[in-house]
Simulated scan of single mutants.
Amino acid sequence: MSTIHDVAEKAGVSIKTVSRVLNDASSVSAKTRTRIEEAMHALDFAPSAAARMLRGVPTGLVAVIAEKLTTTPDSSEIIKGIQSVCEELGKMLIIGETGGRADVASRLVADMRARRVEAIIFATPFHREIALNEMLGQTPTVLANCFEATPRYPQVVPDDEAGGHAAAAAVLQAGHRKIAFLQLIEGMVATRLRLQGFRRALQEHGVAPRADWLLHGATEAEDEFAQLESTIDGLVAGTDRPSAILCGNDKMAMRVIFILQRRGLRVPEDVSVVGFDDFRLISEALDPGLTTVALPYREIGELAARQALGGEQDAGMVRVACRPVLRGTLSAPAKAKGARR
């Protein structure tokens, strides 16, 4: 490989002048800088990152320690958000996947710090609490889509409580009062927060939630939706059935729509269905399109990157809005439509 000595010789300048160009010093004339850059290109010269670190020059590297994030299609938008900020600021993104293993996470952190990354962002595929035991030293650190019980670093998470409120408010404003809520797995942070938002929205509209219609549409079984068909049958078997069903995510909502259609029920004419996530491979592919609440994954990634690279670090939580996206699976309940005619 070519060295800085080779570049200096080819450009006809001193090693010190080449070093100044590498450090982006303004004292080098434009003509000399161009000659050195042409020599670098001709020699296929790549500056040593190790040498830059020894000189105290920022490496321009930003690390993401991800937990099964790159293999989760919908939440991988977090990575895209981080990458967009890195491109804007001239940084290079390095991603390390832990696979959910604490020992791998510790090894990755040690490796990233040895590379003198300018910041570390921890990111998870779903909103959850984590415990960081790694030695992070003075490296700026931000948590994306996750949080610590006792915060030590900035944390950027979705506002799931407001998202649950937004989903319920959408069907309430359409005229529904008989509303079922098929939630995510019991014990998840998002499950608890969205239920709080759901209850708050119903209370604001003077509607009492029915306990027998507040169910879990997903479980921890290998097939998380294995019980969904029997759950839907229990909801729609009699004449007193919900006119709208809220679902914990878009994958669940898609299955609910298919089950309802197999039972001879039309969506949204007989039952409106609302999802959560706005996973567009589903929400925009369904016909009619799925009304849902968007999880702001890309925005979470962007904000986390700006926090990590923005200087001062205040431990605290930023909640990013989850906004409703209205499409074709939500309409007024059948009786209300009949009354208008």
Rank of each mutant, 00 (worst) to 15 (best):
H165C: 03
G206P: 11
L330S: 07
L69M: 12
A211H: 08
C86V: 09
G310P: 09
R192V: 04
R298C: 05
T71V: 06
D240P: 01
E302F: 07
A144P: 05
Q196G: 09
I257Q: 07
H216K: 08
A25P: 01
G248V: 04
T219F: 09
P47D: 01
L193C: 09
V57Y: 14
L108P: 08
S48V: 03
A51W: 01
S76Y: 07
G96C: 05
A119V: 03
N23W: 00
D277N: 15
D159F: 01
A336R: 14
Q196A: 15
L265V: 07
M1A: 14
Q183G: 02
A226G: 02
G137V: 06
V62T: 07
L193T: 04
Q307V: 03
D212N: 14
A166N: 07
A244C: 06
G289D: 06
I232Q: 02
S106H: 11
H205N: 14
V57N: 13
G137M: 13
K337N: 14
W213M: 01
T239K: 13
R298D: 04
V293K: 13
E67T: 00
G275N: 08
L172F: 04
G100P: 04
A8G: 07
T150M: 08
V13Q: 12
R128D: 10
R33S: 06
I232F: 11
F198P: 04
A201Q: 07
G12T: 06
L286R: 01
A149N: 06
A42N: 03
P154C: 04
D278S: 12
A201I: 15
P296R: 00
H216V: 03
E269G: 13
L132P: 05
A237T: 09
A315L: 10
T139W: 08
R327P: 01
R340A: 14
N249R: 13
M112L: 08
D240V: 05
L286W: 00
V64W: 00
W213I: 04
G311Y: 05
P268K: 12
L309Q: 02
S106Y: 06
D277A: 12
P268H: 14
F276L: 07
L184V: 09
S75E: 03
L69K: 05
R306W: 03
E118C: 01
Q227N: 10
G60K: 05
A144V: 04
A285P: 00
R33P: 00
Q83F: 04
A334S: 13
E204P: 08
T141L: 06
M135P: 04
L286E: 04
R128H: 11
